[in-house]
Design a protein around this nucleic acid. Structure first.
Lengths: 157, 157
DNA sequence: TTATTATTCGAATAATCTTCGAAAACTTAT
DNA sequence: ATAAGTTTTCGAAGATTATTCGAATAATAA
């Protein structure tokens, strides 16, 4: 049985660890790595999918190869914190494909956005055309990333 | 031929679009969606992999299900900007599994980290045990995310 | 137009997934 | 401790999918 209250044992964790690194590993090879038969391993993966421990599988595209070299973090303060303002903002921001992440932050009613652009000029376009016009926005503060030192989607399990 | 200078045509882009949403779609179904035969589609995917447009395939794990409910952004200023200080810091920070992202930011010689923790108390542990002791660190400023409004790994293509 | 190259298709084979019943391991209650 | 019940495992068989290949088509250049 597991020590944490999530219903996963050490084999499940190892499976998640491997799949977070290689989502297309064959079931047979995965089974080898976790020391199970293919069928037993397959059943566990199915359970992890059914129970939504695994949200999905995705291909990761290299941003540099498709000309998205610029990452910008944008801090946004809204003009108020009424519920309609917040949810209006959240709904609108979710529709911008250049915005990869949006967090409601503690402290003030601030949002933090992670935006990808082709270059600084392209970010200016996104800023003007999409961000500045978001409903309820009071101030925008943009910070450019010069270099991605580390980037992973793998959570520690 | 493509309008952008990346050597991709509209079918390649559509393939990337689909694979960024579902990295485990069968080649036959993918071929359907982009209106190609299975073999032609397969060849294109192989090329996108070989040329590293696709960095890899991963399973996305739901942080809430494995008790990683807390996301914190940490701004770090270093005591100097000598090359050894920076690279020492970068090397060390890359080894911390709770740090999902680390960016060298423009402006001052600041780093921005995205950290996942079980809860605030667990973040305190990470802060003490891993972050505060990083080489060259002068100041740390942590900002907690209250709510993940949007989260995607899919770049616009 | 014609030669050349790149991309496509369809079919055949190879690899992989998925399901199933039976055996083993583990739990629980008596 | 043991027996009943439950869960997990294994191995084999069938179903699905990936991959390769030669021939045909389409695109490009001379």
């Amino acid at each position: 049985m597991s020590s944490r209250e999530d219903g996963l044992d050490s084999i499940d964790r190892r499976i998640l660890e491997v799949l977070q690194k290689d989502g297309r590993i064959s079931n047979a090879e995965l089974a080898d790595k976790v020391h199970l038969s293919a069928s037993a391993c397959h059943r566990r993966v199915q359970r992890l999918e059914k129970d939504k421990f695994i949200k999905g599988y995705v291909a990761l595209v290299d941003p540099r190869k498709i000309n998205r070299k610029t990452t910008v973090f944008v801090e946004i303060t809204l003009s108020g914190q009424a519920d309609e303002i917040l949810s209006g903002f959240e709904k609108a921001v979710s529709l911008i494909p250049d915005v990869l992440e949006c967090h409601l932050m503690a402290g003030s009613a601030d949002y933090l956005l992670k935006v990808v652009a082709e270059d600084a000029e392209d970010f200016a376009r996104i800023h003007r055309r999409h961000l500045a016009g978001l409903p309820g926005v009071q101030t925008l503060q943009s910070s450019f990333s010069l270099k991605q030192v580390r980037q992973t989607t793998a959570l520690p399990v």
